[in-house]
Simulated scan of single mutants.
Amino acid sequence: MISDYSKIDFEHIRRVAYQWLSMFDIKNFPIRIIPLFGRFDRITLIPYTQAAAKERITINELISKVTRSDDAATLKRADKYFVFYNDSTYEKTVERIRYSIIHELGHIALNHFRDERTLLTRSAMSNEEYEKLEVEANFFAAEFLSPKALISTKWKVSEIQAVFRVSKDSATKTQQFILRNPWFQNRIYSEIDDKQYKFYPSRSLDTLLPPCCTLKQAFKTSGFAFCKKCQSLTRVSPKQSKVYCCVCGERLENVFFDDGHLFTIYDAEVRNMKTYSSIKLNDSGKAMECPQCHASQEEKGEFCDICGTYLINRCTGHPEKGFNYNDFGEPCEEGKILGGRSRYCRFCGCMSTFYQQGILLEYKEDVTSEKNPFFPIVENIANQHPF
């Protein structure tokens, strides 16, 4: 632990963070990390999965032999920096990945490599010196991702989380500082006070992942495909040659993401991703409540005994009109039972029984994401900007 925090010039670090925000003209929050690094001439961002694959080693070997960190690390070669980061959303939350990457950017921005050491590690310096640099990089990351100068005392912890995509712990510390130091909002920072900022409250990754309809289907899927037409994710099975969006029926190509490495698609599309209404199903794929008359259902039987609605969402085998829910035609072999939000079969693109019966609306008519916004954010949050 660092013994004397008075040796750290926090105000200087804050100004450096704001200078970098201004230098790269960052006006939208949450910051998109991957496009940001694409603008750096001498800094390259490399996910662990990519580095391990290129070197033909495991990620554990990469960590033990190269990065010495489970989160992120920076290598300096000549006048260039290589920032490696753990992109596993199995192991890390999106918020932690974002923070770890910007923490490494902090080491660069604060000139922590000025002594020409190529890897910032404990072995290269004393514990206290190392801890001091870590505290400085942490403070830079906090100010860069969620600048306190842009947050008023009215913001809740949950709102700071949603707007800046930081952890609850980080958002709590930010709010506590602002509440304890009301004078801070009267301080002018020339690097950022003349900008027109836009905020895009966003949901956490786990709330955007489409649910499986059965436990069996969960084990049979290995990733997701993203649809740019309706901005949603569709589950993908291993070796699935064709994939159709389960929400809008669009044929999807070359947009597959392993379910353990979704940081890339999240960082690129989170502002646009939409949620659509879904019917809650049991492990057999049957609606637990009739979506038409709302009567509770027993385990046995496929039809509602009150109104006769068919209660299992299946591929109809019909690409167009003509479906009769007492005659399923020839559904595709693999996609027979579908998820609770599927309008279309992800294997063949044919319509689902729920969609044909009008239980699930056409995606353009499904206004779930508009009536139930990503977050109960304060109305017109931009007006709370302290400047």
Rank of each mutant, 00 (worst) to 15 (best):
C307P: 08
E134G: 11
L105M: 11
A78V: 04
I57D: 01
E253D: 11
R343Y: 01
S158Q: 12
F375Y: 15
W183D: 14
H294Q: 13
S100R: 07
I63N: 03
E61P: 01
Q19Y: 09
L21R: 10
T172W: 01
F347I: 08
F256T: 14
T316S: 15
V16D: 03
A295L: 09
L205V: 05
R122V: 10
R68M: 11
R39P: 00
L145D: 05
M125N: 07
K216M: 11
D71V: 02
A171F: 06
F144A: 05
C246D: 09
L360F: 07
R114Q: 08
K336V: 13
G317A: 09
R343G: 08
S22D: 15
A17D: 04
Q217V: 03
A124Y: 09
I265Y: 05
Q50P: 00
K80R: 14
N60K: 13
R117T: 09
Q357K: 04
Q357C: 05
T121A: 12
Y363M: 02
E330K: 14
I377C: 14
A78G: 01
L150T: 07
L110N: 06
R341Q: 13
Q292C: 10
E131H: 06
G285P: 04
I160G: 06
W20T: 12
R56K: 15
I160W: 04
V94E: 01
H294G: 00
D115P: 01
H294K: 15
Y48L: 02
A142V: 11
H261Q: 12
R117Y: 08
R68C: 07
R251F: 13
Y344W: 15
P331S: 03
G106A: 03
D87H: 12
G339L: 06
Q357P: 01
N380P: 04
E320S: 11
E55N: 12
Y197Q: 03
F303I: 07
E298H: 08
I188R: 15
R56H: 15
K198S: 14
K173W: 01
A73L: 02
P211W: 02
E269G: 00
E253R: 15
L75N: 00
Y90D: 12
E362G: 00
T89E: 05
Y18P: 04
H12I: 09
I359A: 11
H385D: 10
I192L: 03
I57W: 02
Q356D: 11
S369D: 15
E136S: 10
N383P: 00
N326C: 04
P238A: 06
F139G: 01
F139Y: 15
T214E: 05
Q176G: 00
A149S: 12
V367H: 10
E159L: 01
K80E: 11
P201I: 09
R117F: 06
E11G: 10
T309Q: 09
S22Y: 04
L105A: 07
E61L: 06
F84K: 05
N326D: 07
K198C: 02
E129T: 11
P211N: 10
A17S: 13
F144R: 01
A73F: 06
D194E: 13
